[in-house]
């Protein structure tokens, strides 16, 4: 698992709100640092690392949610709009985390099934001596393929709408 990117520019004496605008964009960049690798389904390690970075972004957004809500002198309307937009962005991040999680779960299951088959003396996944294992390998490969396709479709759809730019603009505003 890749280490988190070192956060820079934090000022402990500055407000929580101000530091949110320093830390969160860096978390977004960490997620996007894995983007060049997502176009190949076999990049298991990088997809896993992206999932971990997405999780870090999600948790950090949750810590800082309070920094994107009501400001003392703001009108109620401004606060509600801001909260709603924050929740919408967070929903996308949670969705990425879940689908990347499903892909990772499939990768782990496939590894466990293959290891078990080889320990049991079956060299190939097609070996019919373990029909249950063979069936689950086929089933898991299918669901992994479907999840990966869904992930890419969602990613491309969001990219086409300039999601990263919008997210960064919101988080630094």
């Amino acid at each position: 698992m890749a280490k988190p990117h070192k956060i820079t520019g934090v000022e402990p004496t500055h407000s929580y709100r101000k530091n949110a605008r320093v830390i969160l964009p860096q978390k977004v960049e960490e997620v996007y640092s894995w983007e060049p690798f997502i176009w190949e389904a076999a990049r298991r390690e990088e997809l896993h690392n992206m999932r971990i970075s997405v999780k870090r972004l999600r948790y950090t957004m949750e810590f800082f949610s309070v920094a994107y809500g009501l400001r003392k002198k703001c009108s109620k309307t401004v606060s509600v709009t801001s909260d709603k937009r924050f929740a919408e962005f967070l929903e996308v991040i949670v969705d990425w985390q879940e689908i990347l999680g499903d892909i990772h779960d499939s990768d782990v299951v496939l590894e466990v099934l293959a290891d078990y088959a080889s320990q049991s003396g079956n060299q190939t996944e097609q070996d019919a001596a373990l029909p249950g294992v063979t069936k689950l390998i086929a089933r898991t490969q299918e669901s992994r393929k479907a999840d990966y396709k869904t992930f890419l479709e969602k990613w491309e759809r969001l990219s086409a709408t300039g999601f990263k730019k919008k997210l960064l603009s919101f988080l630094t505003s």
């Binding site: 934090v10 000022e11 402990p12 004496t13 500055h14 407000s15 929580y16 709100r17 101000k18 530091n19 949110a20 810590f63 309070v66 920094a67 809500g69 003392k72």
Partner: peptide, 16 residues
């Protein structure tokens, strides 16, 4: 507990 966004980061960090 919820922190106050106008507090210095350090005290919020400790609480979290």
């Amino acid at each position: 507990k919820k922190v106050s966004p106008d507090e210095p980061l350090e005290s919020c960090a400790r609480q979290i």
